[in-house]
Amino acid sequence: MDHLTTTKHTTDTEATHTQKIAGQKRDASAITTVSSQGSSASSGEGLEIRNESKREGEVKRPKLGEEQTSSNRSDNNMALIEETSMEGRQCFVTVGATAGFRPLLSEVITPEFLNCLADNHFDLLKVQCGEDFEWFDEQVKSLPSSPVTIERFAFTENMAKHYIRSRGEMSVRMPGVVVAHAGSGTILEVLRLQVPLVVVPNPTLMDNHQAELAQELESTGDAVYGRLGKLTEAIARSLELVAQGPLKLKDLPPYSPPPFPVPDSERVTLFDWMTLTCYPDELRKQQHLQDLRNVEKSFQRELEQAKVPQTETVQDRRQRDLD
């Protein structure tokens, strides 16, 4: 176990401020718990380690060695995970790379929010804090205790692996949530991965088109608009959306990237048409073909519409014959 944790630390290449010593100390203490209580450890710490090693073996989860953790899990959470043998819910908070977002960071470590997470069977709170890493680190250290594990790091290029950890996959893990700033890059990536999303616009940014986007997403049912100061509500609504929403974010099959190249039927053809405007003769030809296609399609549609009553009458006739 000790060997495993140290390799985890050394193999990780992400340049984040880490506190390995503290992390190792914690691991060491966990190991002593395990060894003293044997393999069927009943304490939270021991179970956590076991659970982590299982994840490593089973689903090849990306290693998260550099993140420092401070944990005190509630026992019922652990029981739930043990029962279903699935990874628990993760709440991943991201503020992006370009600007800091302290109000969001300070809200996610309020006792109210942490308790809300614990009540909803979340077992991990992971925070990407950007430039405010050191400040956030101190804040977390000054917390008396936390019902969920809190991991934190400054920034990484590969955010997808952290988003995936919040993705609800069938018999692998329960759907968590990503609480994100309203950057379009982040939102697009999270939605593409089919991960439940809470968008929190930064009210201090100069023009508030972020709020506009968040409202739009809320109205289409793709994400939840999280307002600062009311994040617990947003978490509850997100869980509702996962349970009942049209997106079906629960029990998904394992993520597979979309096919590339995109199938012809789904392709965006705008740039092709624009290229054709440079070749007027060819454009005329292709547009003519397109018109023909449209005519053909409308004809087919009419045919189908005409067919529907026909087939019904045939069925009716059969019914009548049977009668």
């Binding site: 199938p263 012809d264 039927s265 789904e266 392709r267 965006v268 053809t269 705008l270 092709d272 048409w273 290229t275 054709l276 070749y279 060819e282 292709q286 547009q287 073909l289 397109q290 296609r293 449209n294 399609k297």
Partner: peptide, 24 residues
């Protein structure tokens, strides 16, 4: 019609892709 990308998959055979720019 060519500005809006097709929302529904079209029942097209391999040769009837429009617009076709392979010959340019």
């Amino acid at each position: 019609s060519w500005l809006v990308p097709s929302n529904t998959p079209q029942p097209n055979a391999a040769g009837t892709q429009v617009p076709n720019t392979t010959s340019l």
